[in-house]
Amino acid sequence: MWFVGLGVLLILLKLLGIGPVAAWAWWWVLSPFAGAVLWWAWADASGYTKRREMDKMDERKEARRQKAMNALGQGEKDRRR
């Protein structure tokens, strides 16, 4: 996502003629989009995005479990003897 944001910023700077970016060649300005494509290709091919998705799902599942246990009075913090 950082690559896309940087690419949009560079395009705006190029079109508005602001700073040194106005003098850069277009392929330099558009290169962050190529970086984004390479990043997404690597992340999908290596399973990085799937692992992050599964980790988030596990965290939500554990939070739901803890909430249910606390509602039943079985939570770790609520144990009384």
Rank of each mutant, 00 (worst) to 15 (best):
L13D: 01
G73S: 08
A41Y: 15
S31P: 08
K56L: 15
K67T: 09
V29F: 03
M54F: 12
Q66D: 12
L38I: 14
M69G: 04
E76V: 11
Y48G: 14
N70Q: 15
A43H: 08
M54V: 14
A43W: 03
G17E: 10
W28D: 15
W39M: 13
A71W: 08
V21S: 00
M69L: 13
L16V: 09
R51V: 07
L38M: 14
D58F: 11
L12C: 04
A23P: 00
G75C: 13
A63K: 15
W42I: 06
S46V: 13
L15N: 09
R51N: 05
E76N: 04
A25I: 01
G19C: 13
L30M: 14
G19F: 08
L9M: 06
L72F: 15
W24V: 01
K67A: 14
S31G: 02
E59G: 03
T49K: 00
S31R: 04
V21H: 02
L10V: 02
E53S: 09
W40C: 09
L15G: 09
T49P: 06
A36I: 02
L72E: 14
A34V: 15
E76Y: 06
K61P: 05
D55K: 06
I18E: 05
K14A: 02
G47E: 00
R65S: 07
T49Y: 04
E59V: 09
N70I: 13
W24K: 00
Y48A: 07
K67C: 05
N70M: 10
Q74C: 05
W24S: 01
V21Y: 05
M69H: 01
W27S: 12
V21F: 01
A71Q: 11
K67G: 12
G47H: 09
D78W: 15
M69T: 03
D55W: 12
D44Y: 15
P32L: 05
W27H: 12
A71V: 01
E76F: 12
G73T: 03
Y48S: 11
A25W: 04
D58I: 07
E59K: 08
E76K: 14
E62S: 07
W28C: 04
D55A: 12
V37D: 10
D58A: 14
G17T: 03
G19V: 04
D58C: 10
L10R: 03
L15I: 05
A22M: 10
N70Y: 07
F33P: 11
M69D: 05
P32T: 05
M54D: 12
D78H: 05
A41N: 01
L10K: 01
L12G: 04
W27R: 04
W39A: 03
M54G: 02
W27G: 01
A41Q: 14
A63L: 15
G35D: 14
N70K: 15
A43Q: 06
A68T: 07
S31Y: 01
A63N: 12
E53K: 02
A34F: 15
V37R: 09
R51F: 05
G35I: 04
K50H: 03
A36M: 05
W42A: 07
K67R: 08
A68N: 12
A43P: 03
G75N: 10
A41F: 11
K56G: 10
K56H: 13
V21I: 10
V29Q: 00
G35Y: 08
A36T: 02
W24Y: 03
W26H: 00
L16R: 10
